[in-house]
Design a protein around this nucleic acid. Structure first.
Length: 864
RNA sequence: GCCCGGGUGGUGGAAUUGGUAGACACGCAGGACUUAAAAUCCUGUGGAUAGUAAUAUCUGUACGGGUUCAACUCCCGUCCCGGGUACCA
């Protein structure tokens, strides 16, 4: 054993050992309990950042911990390789997205290997490979035949200057990020998957996902947003045409004072033909992107169409407005407005001088002032004819029934969840396997012609997808009639690939099918780990996809991920400069020098390169687009992978977001050096005998007790709570105790040997390289990788006395030592006898005494 | 706007079921070792007051209220920060 800790050498040797022994190769074995541990695969952006290090270290720690519990562990890794950044790089640097992406993968793979992550690399996959997306295309054509896939028009962000579709990220303050042109909404035909057909199951199954954080389940519930409501049919005066709206508050129907329709609604279009100002308003409404956050925060505007609607119950004539916040395609594209009982309607009515008609009054009959705001709670109906006096709940049923009888409405369950639009007008994605034939219409590509391979040798001569102009790609023959036909040139949303990769890892070499029986050995994933930013979209799509695969007979389970750990983001400051045309250029934290105030907060910053000021942005998740990722490479080069892993795990519990700072890395490194030295000095002094518990001295017993208490705590922290930071802290305390323990006797050394062995075993999942070496040094023939997790011995943890706190009126006044088996009476007597406590009881009447065994005694006295 | 989180010393964080706030670590200060430095080791470290000191008292978990014998923890309200918001992944 080396005297000093040389991480580079330790890590090189250990990794060579793993490589040589194929230590992480996962093999299906029906006789062993399996554990499939998966961390969300990365987008190959170029280099790892600290968020990756955190994500993959957590996964590796859990994998290694489970392995020490005797499980047959699968931990794979792959690449979410399609996506927008590759196209941006292609446009900027004139390099094909495939080339750029594969180079990034190669570099990032070496970085992951350097971190010592125990992956079964034989299962590696990249979603941009035809062998992968082949099966996604295959499934899509199956779903088309099942009626779960359809085409409809839907709005996109359109840049009229670049003549291209923009992602929401490419729209900055309503303008194109490249040319600063105001973005427009434009309707184009796109493919959709019927996720709403699974809405009930996706919602109801959340109740059974007990291994998921409640927070994530709540977010998904709200996102799916099942609500009961009523379709209400108004009619347009004069023409008598129906105008359907949906409401979750039919009890307020008698309070409707106007209707509002989307600018794209046929009623609005008709009014536009008649009135120039209406046409201008509609044109105005389209000058905004499609993002919900933008639509919901923009100024609410409307215009009167001049048309009137007839109320289905009262027959009143109500104005029909066009409103910029009503969206075509969500629901009916038209809403009924009840200013008295909906805050947005109230504000709109006030702005345009529309009447406010109260029809609900609070149950407790308190006064409501509708001049101040809308009253949005449920209550009792007034001014509602035959329905007056009913509660909101009663009126819901009564009004729905009434409308149904009159054929003017019916009850309906709706979802906030919308069908999944999977078409992208981009190049770097999996081609949608559909053919458009003039004669036969849409025809799916037959199985024998799959995969539809994306041409990789392309040049970007503009910003548009090159395959849209590539006849070689899109010209084809119709599989049905044999005539000339065109391929779909749109590609899939990249969420398609990430929705089933977890399943493909069970058999990535399968050339004949999407999945095989290995899937049912490994699935579902026992532990999934990834950023909280994926709480809704990715995790919901993956759940949906899993059910789709189940329903075509590929898997048996209903849900893909049994337990979910959502790690908090690693966030970092952003720095940018703004040009005259509002374009922002972001600079990495490594290229910037921050000036801090006396409290350590950054107040200004300059670019190191030129010394000129840059602006401070928000502190955000590390990302390519904001250029605020911190590359772990320097850290690893300087201190080694174990220090990097230990530091990131010690910095905070995994679910908490973490503002990046490398202050404290030294501490992690110091700890490993200390551990190495203590083990070195211990083994240099010779071997150790077996512990004889009966003959131990008090000090020996105390150290041994702390060892076993630490094992117990760390087992809970690492196996159940996932609070690796507190497990590490407990091990640090244990090591502090060992260095204070000065006893060279045989039994003294035996106790130290046991403590050091436990320390190495507990740390093995976190710092596997140093643990591998130290385990050998402590005299074990088997590698630590094959060692079992240590067991806490109850007999070693027995305590004779415990310290408990004594409070008077809830304030701490003293501490007492009492026998650990003392009863309440004994604890109370001891507490009352404590000197400082007696001072506070002096001359006061004791009202009661609360005893919490093993914790606290609180004496409640009268008076001040 | 809406949905979901978070806010504790100079810093990262601990307090697991309502029961001793600040474990562990960083930083800082002082000391030991050294010709010196690095490394290492030891001691102290929320704020205030009193005391030579041991120690004691008051105060303190974003802010304002409340429940309770007892609140970082539960409830109501406010502010600030982060994530998502369906084409960033």
């Amino acid at each position: 054993m080396q005297e000093s800790y040389l991480p580079e050498q330790v890590e090189r040797d250990t990794q060579a050992y793993w490589e040589q022994h194929q230590s992480f190769r996962a093999v299906e074995d029906a006789t062993k309990e399996k554990f499939y541990c998966l961390a969300m695969f990365p987008y190959p952006s170029g280099r790892l950042h600290m968020g990756h290090v955190r994500n993959y270290t957590i996964g590796d720690v859990i994998s290694r911990y489970q392995r020490m519990q005797g499980k047959n562990v699968l931990q794979p890794m792959g690449w979410d390789a399609f996506g927008l950044p590759a196209e941006n790089a292609a446009i900027q640097n004139n390099v094909p997205p495939a080339t750029w992406t594969r180079a990034n993968i190669d570099y990032m793979r070496t970085q992951l290997k350097r971190l010592g992550l125990g992956y079964d690399w034989s299962r590696e996959l990249a979603t941009c490979n035809p062998e992968y997306y082949h099966w996604e295309q295959w499934l899509f054509t199956r779903l088309y035949k099942k009626g779960l896939v359809y085409k409809k028009t839907s709005p996109v962000n359109w840049c009229p200057h670049d003549m291209t579709v923009l992602a929401n990220e490419q729209v900055v303050d309503g303008r194109c990020w490249r040319c600063d042109t105001t973005v427009e909404r434009k309707d184009i035909p796109q493919w959709f998957m019927k996720i709403t057909a699974y809405a009930d199951e996706l919602l109801d199954e959340l109740d059974n996902l007990s291994g998921w954080p409640e927070q994530v389940r709540t977010m998904q519930r709200n996102w799916i947003g099942r609500s009961a409501g009523v379709d209400v049919v108004f009619t347009i005066a004069h023409s008598g045409e129906p105008l359907k709206v949906f409401t979750t508050r039919p009890d307020t129907l008698l309070g409707v004072t106007y209707l509002a329709v989307a600018p794209e609604h046929p009623v609005a279009q008709r009014a536009a033909k008649k009135y120039a100002n209406v046409a201008a308003f509609i044109h105005d409404c389209a000058q905004v992107g499609t993002a919900e956050a933008v639509v919901e925060t923009m100024e609410k505007k409307g215009i009167d169409t001049g048309l009137l609607a007839v109320h289905p119950i009262t027959g009143d004539h109500l104005p029909i407005f066009i409103a910029n916040f009503v969206l075509m395609g969500y629901g009916e594209g038209a809403v009924m407005s009840v200013p008295a009982h909906d805050q947005r309607d109230w504000e709109f009515a006030r702005q345009y001088g529309l009447p406010v008609r109260q029809v609900i009054t609070p149950i407790d009959a308190t006064q409501v002032d509708l001049r101040v705001r809308a009253f949005t709670d449920k209550g009792v109906l007034i001014h509602s004819g035959a329905f007056s006096g009913m509660t909101s709940a009663q009126a819901f049923e009564a009004i729905a029934t009434h409308l149904q009888k009159q054929h003017k409405g019916s009850k309906r369950t709706t979802y906030r969840l919308r069908d999944w639009g999977v078409s992208r007008q981009r190049y770097w994605g999996a081609p949608i396997p559909m053919i458009n034939c003039k004669k036969c219409g849409v025809v799916p590509v037959p199985d024998a012609q799959l995969p539809v391979v994306l041409p990789e040798d392309v040049k970007f001569d503009g910003v548009a997808s090159p395959i849209k102009k590539m006849a070689k790609f899109y010209k084809t023959t119709c599989p049905q009639c044999g005539g000339a036909a065109q391929r779909e040139t749109d590609t899939f949303d990249t969420f398609m690939e990430s929705s089933w990769y977890f399943a493909r890892f069970t058999g990535p070499d399968n050339q004949r099918g999407m999945l095989d029986k290995r899937a049912d050995y490994w699935l579902p994933v026992d532990q999934y780990i990834g950023g909280i930013e994926h709480a809704i979209l990715h995790l919901l799509y993956a759940r949906f996809y899993h059910k789709l695969m189940r329903d075509v007979g590929l898997v048996r389970s209903a849900e893909p991920f049994t337990r979910l750990l959502t790690q908090g983001m690693v966030v970092a400051p952003t720095f940018y400069r703004e040009t005259m045309d509002n374009k922002k250029t972001y600079f990495g934290p490594a290229d910037v020098h921050e000036n801090c105030d006396e409290r350590g907060r950054a107040v200004s910053a300059v670019l190191k390169r030129d010394g000129d000021a840059v602006r401070l942005g928000n502190i955000e998740k590390m990302s390519k687009s904001k250029n605020n990722g911190v590359d772990p490479q320097q850290l690893i080069n300087e201190y080694g992978a174990d220090t990097a892993r230990l530091f990131i795990m010690f910095a905070a519990p995994p679910e908490q977001s973490l503002e990046w700072s490398d202050a404290g890395v030294e501490g992690a490194f110091r700890f490993l050096k200390r551990l190495w030295r203590i083990v070195y000095e211990h083994v240099q002094a010779g071997s150790a005998v077996a512990i004889q518990p009966a003959v131990l001295t008090d000090k020996q017993r105390i150290l041994r007790r702390q060892t076993h208490e630490t094992i117990r705590k760390c087992t809970d922290d690492m196996g159940r709570r996932f609070t690796f930071n507190t497990a590490i802290a407990a091990v640090m305390e244990l090591l502090n105790a060992v260095s204070k323990f000065d006893d060279d006797s045989d039994q003294g050394r035996a106790v130290v040997r046991e403590t050091l062995a436990a320390t190495v075993l507990i740390l093995a999942p976190i710092v596997p390289h140093i643990a591998h070496q130290l385990w050998q040094a402590l005299g074990h023939d088997q590698p630590v990788l094959q060692a079992a997790w240590p067991l806490a011995d109850d007999a070693a943890m027995v305590r004779d006395t415990v310290e408990i706190a004594v409070q008077v009126n809830g304030k701490l006044r003293g501490r007492i030592q009492i026998a650990s088996d003392a009863d309440r009476k004994q604890a109370e007597t001891a507490a009352l006898a404590e000197e400082n406590v007696k001072r506070f009881l002096d001359g006061k009447a004791i009202i009661k005494v609360i005893v919490v065994p093993g914790k606290i005694v609180n004496i409640v006295v009268a008076g001040p």
